[in-house]
């Protein structure tokens, strides 16, 4: 359970994400955080993971909650990937050797594993996923849904295996054994693989098991965002033309 107690948070001290919200978020379910991607949603995910602090109120985590998956905020560029991974394992009290070996095996970055992290820029994303999912958190906070959608695609492909990516397999194993909080605007994915919908709008939170309403809301939001994007693209085209 993640408990929000009178939490207020704004984006750049102006746009509200949450306004004095009391809320309880279960950590043993697969939760889709719906709504258009943007600074509000990113800020909310950071708040849950603990990367950001609320302006007032507090966030109490009763279970071990991951850092935002897909990002490695604490990695030092000058140090080798191996040292950085060992540091994370030590930081979270996991088995260092096991974690380092798993990440090395899963990411397959070879010799770059012992070179500075800045040289492993190309595989930074896979590295971030591998590090997060090799640590046994109770609940994972996914700030983007790319990996989840890839996993979903592999699940629905005919042979059920797809390309056979180890990171996706690792994610699948965690999906079965741990809680997930996934920020997504893919309604189909959420309906298929998540059992709770969390909707963030105008400083308020809504959690629902009857997901049709939330999804409709998300769909409408998505439509609005797409319309804005189309308009913007048209304007740019006209300007250039």
């Amino acid at each position: 359970m993640i408990t929000l107690e009178k939490v207020t948070k704004r984006v750049q001290r102006a746009k509200p994400i949450l306004l004095s919200v009391d809320f309880q978020i279960p950590t043993d379910r697969r939760i889709a955080v719906l709504g258009p991607a943007g600074p509000e949603k990113r800020g909310f995910m950071n708040l849950l993971a603990g990367t950001d602090m609320p302006e007032s109120g507090r966030v109490v985590r009763h279970k071990s909650v991951s850092f935002p998956v897909g990002d490695l905020p604490g990695f030092i560029r000058e140090l080798s990937v191996r040292i950085n991974v060992a540091h994370v394992a030590r930081l979270y009290g996991a088995d260092v050797r096991w974690t380092v070996n798993t990440v090395e095996k899963v990411t397959k970055i070879g010799a770059r594993f012992d070179r500075p992290y800045e040289q492993a820029a190309a595989s930074r994303r896979e590295l971030a996923y591998a590090v997060a999912f090799s640590l046994p958190f109770d609940v994972y906070v996914l700030a983007d849904d790319k990996l989840a959608r890839e996993w979903s695609r592999q699940q629905s492909s005919k042979d059920g295996k797809g390309k056979g990516n180890d990171i996706v397999a690792l994610f699948g194993a965690r999906m079965e054994s741990a809680g997930m909080i996934i920020a997504t605007d893919d309604v189909e994915f959420a309906r298929k693989h998540c059992d709770l919908g969390l909707f963030l709008h105008g400083g308020e939170l809504a959690l629902t098991e009857d997901m049709s309403n939330t999804f409709d809301g998300a769909k409408q939001e998505r439509r609005k965002v797409r319309a804005i994007a189309r308009r913007r693209a048209r304007l740019i085209r006209e300007k250039r033309g």
């Binding site: 071990s64 996991a94 899963v106 046994p136 109770d138 180890d166 397999a169 194993a173």
Partner: peptide
Amino acid sequence: MSGGLLQRWPSLRDT
């Protein structure tokens, strides 16, 4: 990578 490998793990939460 199998689910069995992950199951051996205790929770990171120390109580």
